[in-house]
Design a protein around this nucleic acid. Structure first.
Lengths: 185, 185
DNA sequence: ACCTGAACACCGTTCAAGT
DNA sequence: ACCTGAACACCGTTCAAGT
């Protein structure tokens, strides 16, 4: 005899997201999640394979969210990079989760697509991939180090990030097409 | 009545390092560590406060190891950056652990000191900090993304890393001293 | 068809008792 | 002074039994 569903996968993911951001990965307990959605822990296994699968879902939702933000800001390269850091600062635990190898690598890589498109407009197709990797790697590392508290030598981090953007985007503009040495067209 | 010590903090850290690299953080169980050093789990608490403290010790040893490698390669900026990536590929779990907020931030920051010194020689003292942050952030992000499998669009990663080094170091060289506009000396 | 109580294996941690 | 067995709280997960 059917029983009405008392929760949903979306609700479960939502609860996990909140617990994660509030208390880190250790706080994402099957029990805590179940409690948050008004159900007992064993019931969660009807919707998610296990805890790792739930964390993967959380990570993939975060990746998709980040991708959406980057797309929305993809008109200007610096806006996209600022949006990237903003995401990391708003959702530090989700950001860290992205690079945990729990999250599907393709879903994570999709994050770079919007950046790749804007980059192409700046440096041309030949070096778009290298340039996009340079930018995404830098931004990823900056936010990772910032969240880890690795920047200890003072200075305004907002300014440091802007310095990086200006420097990198500027250098990409001048360093285009290194293999068409001098003979015109 | 004294009892001979059957293990040591160093041995315990060593076992934890091995377990970490072989099976990730989840494999670093107090039981597994105790077993590896020939003791029962409760005995570990004579030497380390708890599991988190043990992981912190592992992370700090990794940070010191990385710092030593960077110092050894600090003659040339590109050597230092190559050594940084080599460390990440040799000890991916330790590398990830570095940015876990478990590790003391000062100890992590100390890692950047050798890079800062070399950078200073390239761009001068005024922008050494900005430049060092640019480089360490990029390298950190590159290795983080590489380990997470985030580079999915093909291409040789060794080459991509070299591209980054060449581009970044080159751009730093030409972008020096932006605030001494034109009036000599 | 979903939900739950009971149970199991495993983990971190404490502590009294051994030597 | 270090080590251990026993115990406790907590966690992930399974499954038979409920509705």
């Amino acid at each position: 005899m059917p029983t009405p569903e008392r929760t949903s996968t979306e609700q479960i993911i939502g609860a996990a997201v909140r617990l994660l951001e509030d208390g880190g990965p250790a706080a994402v307990t099957m029990q805590a999640v179940a409690n948050a959605v008004g159900v007992k822990a064993p019931s969660l296994y009807k919707r998610v394979r296990d805890r790792d699968a739930l964390l993967r879902l959380v990570g993939e939702q975060a990746a998709d969210d980040l991708t959406r933000r980057l797309e929305a800001a993809s008109g200007r390269l610096d806006d996209a990079l600022l949006a990237f850091r903003r995401f990391g600062r708003e959702r530090p635990e989700a950001f860290r989760l992205l690079f945990t190898s729990l999250v599907d690598a393709d879903r994570l890589a999709a994050t770079s697509a919007p950046v790749l498109r804007v980059t192409e407009a700046v440096v041309g197709p030949a070096h778009a991939l290298d340039a996009a990797r340079l930018l995404t790697a830098w931004a990823t590392g900056f936010v990772t180090m910032e969240l880890a508290g690795a920047f200890r030598l003072g200075g305004d981090l907002d300014e440091a990030y802007r310095y990086g953007i200006t420097h990198l985007v500027g250098s990409l503009r001048t360093a285009q097409e290194p293999e068409r040495p001098a003979h015109g067209s």
